[in-house]
Write a protein that binds this DNA or RNA. Structure first.
Lengths: 339, 339
DNA sequence: CCTCTTACCGAAAACGATTAAAAAATATTC
DNA sequence: GAATATTTTTTAATCGTTTTCGGTAAGAGG
């Protein structure tokens, strides 16, 4: 490995000078700067991040906490888009990213310890069990943190507007004339609660009451559980004319159930998903869904996190709400209310 | 930050003793080991990976190179499963993973430089343009490397058996009685070539010739291009009775085209995909496809890479072939040859 | 010719850990 | 109890950088 010392020897200057020349200090003459930079690239010099970190105590490395016990996260399309965007924005700003976990070899370590061990300047947290002790410990530590889709006190967060999403979807269905609208929602997390708020608000604004039979809990991303929920809905004496599903993937479970019952989409029943992943536009019929702006969510997270890292004292916690967008496929039809 | 010195002061021993006690050297008395470990956990001590690296020159950090210019990679379900598995296996062995890119802030750096900068002990390479100079530079460098789905000389690789996959799929269709089998394949990469070999072999074994009209190139993961390819096939004077698609996702483009033409799957035409992602079992009808064992591919890569890292001299390059598995859905029907 | 700026450069001390080699403490043997 | 062997601990150097604080040389001004 070629070090700063090698350059200093070759140039006949001290290591200090080399360091300064490389880092653009202004007390080095133009000439030596040229010489040093020249030989650095000749020798194919690469700085050593670890040594630099040791001295400056900033690693230019941000941790990402994206996976919990259930192991979805990386393989969840919505989150993998966020991750991709986080990665790009981080790199654009000179930061690398490292996954944070709870086990390193045989050593068990907490998330916080892992961050300290790797000297992460900050951490992006998403898709984890926010109620867990380990996550809580990290969030309340001194390490700058940003959470995605979950709001904590005194911590910045970037949140996809779930109230808006469910509200707009419900309104879309209502506008099409549907009145018997069912909502299969995910587990009662904070995200789900927001969506319920949006859903209820839309109904209330039209003076409609929500039939409790039409509100069913299933599991996000779990086609099976959603399939069962769909079956329960369609077995009701008065089944819904439209169903809002927890997400685009689990909708496929519902779709299977509906098709098996000989119901055509959207002729016999209207449906919509949530997330707006690529897939939604590819399946038949294209799914009307709510597109969460994963790209923007990732970017904003990193932007705000870096702001927090670099101006720690002056940077106030902030909640950043990211709007989504309704993507209309052809899974919803006009409905003549004739009940 | 609490360091080894803090512990040494509190315990009244030298830093060296603390280090040894923590790392389980056998020339430290049981008693001091207990004392040191005790106070270490009391003070909530976390070692500093950077400092350790500087002295030992091993970072326990492996780089992953998963994305190229086209930016798919993280958002490709097959690769995200590989990534997930790489991550898990790495963590299990005490390694963290860091994404390697070509730009860090405003600095342009080659992949190799990035690895050196972050002191990666080794790199897993997948889903990149293997022909590029930058990748080549990394692969031929001193950094231990493993490639996925691409074989390089003198470098270990883990390869999904694409000959087997296409061969088995074609055979499956042949067994069902199909004779007019089309193969929409991806860009002519080494992976695609292997699949073509498998396909041709299966046909040849039955004494069938391959109709060049039935071999169409499209783009992986691109529903649009596959849709067009499908259209071209079905516009032939004698269209195929079965189509093999480049992958499960892009199949959806083909599906759309077939449905639009009023063709039912599998009654009017049989289809199969490739990859065997979760999605394949969720769509209607469930897709017959070839499951690539992403989990095993990730694990084997890391296992072999770590072996290379830790026994650099004695560890020979090796090609590891990973078998897949046919997943039969209901997208293929028996076909009575009546041509 | 002396002093004062200004412009460059270098010495040396860190950062937090590891690890030879030396030293000190303790145990063993006669 | 001295000599020797054994166990335990410490000293000090080192990894590759950064950065403070002086130091030197050259030119300016008198």
């Amino acid at each position: 490995m070629v070090t700063i010392k090698d350059i200093s020897k070759k140039c006949g200057v001290s290591p200090a000078t080399v360091s300064k020349a490389l880092n653009g200090y202004d007390d080095i003459s133009e000439e030596t700067i040229r010489l040093v930079r020249q030989t650095a690239s000749e020798l194919n010099y690469t700085p050593n991040a670890a040594a630099r970190l040791l001295k400056t105590s900033t690693s230019h490395n941000i941790g990402v906490l994206f996976v919990d016990d259930t192991m979805s996260g990386l393989t969840h399309e919505y989150f993998s888009y966020i991750l991709n965007s986080v990665k790009e924005e981080a790199e654009k700003n000179g930061y690398d990213i490292t996954f944070i976990s709870q086990t390193l070899g045989k050593r068990k370590m907490s998330f916080l310890q892992h961050c300290l061990y790797r000297n992460c300047d900050g951490v992006v947290i998403a898709s984890v069990n926010f109620a867990s002790r380990a996550v809580h410990e990290l969030i309340t530590s001194d390490v700058p943190v940003i959470t995605i889709d979950y709001a904590y006190d005194n911590v910045s967060s970037v949140i996809s507007d779930n109230v808006e999403g469910a509200y707009e979807l419900a309104n879309y269905l209502l506008d099409k004339g549907h009145r018997r609208i069912a909502f299969i929602h995910g587990e009662l997390t904070s995200v789900t609660n927001k969506r319920l708020v949006g859903f209820n608000r839309a109904m209330k604004e039209r003076g409609l009451s929500v039939d409790p039979d039409y509100l069913i809990e299933a599991r996000y991303h779990d086609a099976d559980s959603v399939r069962k929920a769909t079956a329960r809905l369609m077995d009701l004496p008065v089944p819904p004319t439209a169903i809002m599903f927890p997400d685009d993937i689990s909708y496929l479970g519902g779709q299977a159930e509906l098709q098996q019952r000989g119901l055509r989409i959207p002729d016999d029943i209207s449906v919509c998903g949530y997330d707006g992943i690529n897939l939604a536009g590819l399946i038949q019929p294209p799914l009307t869904t709510w597109h969460q702006d994963a790209d923007r969510i990732g970017k904003e997270s990193v932007r705000k996190l870096i702001e927090t890292i670099e101006h720690r004292s002056t940077c106030a916690a902030e909640q950043i709400m990211v709007s989504g967008q309704l993507v209309s496929g052809s899974s919803v039809r006009e409905w003549d209310e004739k009940m």
